[in-house]
Amino acid sequence: MKAEELAVLGQHKMAKVFDVILLLALIGFFTVIPHVSRMLYMGDWDFWVDWKDKLWWPIAGPSSALLVTAVGHYLAWYYLRLPLGATFTAVFVLIGAWLSRIFSFYSMEYYPINFIWPATTIPMALALDLILFWSRSYLVTSLIGGFLWGFLFYPVNWLMLMPFLQPVTLFGKTFTIADLMGYYFIRPQTPEYLRRIDEGTLQAFLGQRIWISILMAGIACTFMYWIGIGLGKLLGILPMRKVLRQT
């Protein structure tokens, strides 16, 4: 069927209803799948501002967020030729996370929003989709878009994190505002380890520490992009062709 014919058929009332239903299904599944992955792989770092450190959060955060975003990016391109999948996933996972923070963390257990905001991935998702759109190549997208995904995660979110990294002195001790908030809101997830990672040889890298972490994140995300593509192919596309016990 030619593209013009398809476009004409797409104007049919029924075709438009199909579009709406597909959109609802996409919204539902591309909220739950990335959101569950995100809460179970980077959960604690995403939940609490005092967990947003310089070692684990900039690496575990973007790589786990990319996994399912890359699937959305891939399926949208494969099935619909739309360079919108990553952005769509990033937007709806953030909506899901915000609904949870507002209606569970804040309005049921009264943690202040300042303490529990989720990290965003929308700017990198836009870059990922645009690079695929321009290059039409998964390899180029993984090398440039995947790298930027990891590399930009911390700088993009740093704008929101910055106010909570200001130092305060209380009872003769100096810590960040994020730490102070953590001491006031005692939880089982009060991080014990943050004080530990500020020791060790990583500290010897002085001001370069965050650069090392986000470089590593960029490389990790370059690989993670392919895991996402493989997952999308294995569970989103191959099942379409495979039939058991066909006669």
Partner: peptide, 29 residues
């Protein structure tokens, strides 16, 4: 269309899964 509608209704319960799962994280706090 009905097949697609069943998938969309299932997706809505998926939305419930992600909401109540993260709520469980904060309950255990």
């Amino acid at each position: 269309g009905k097949l697609w509608a069943t998938v969309a209704v299932a997706a809505m319960f998926g939305f419930g899964v992600s909401y109540f799962a993260e709520q469980d994280a904060v309950w255990h706090q």
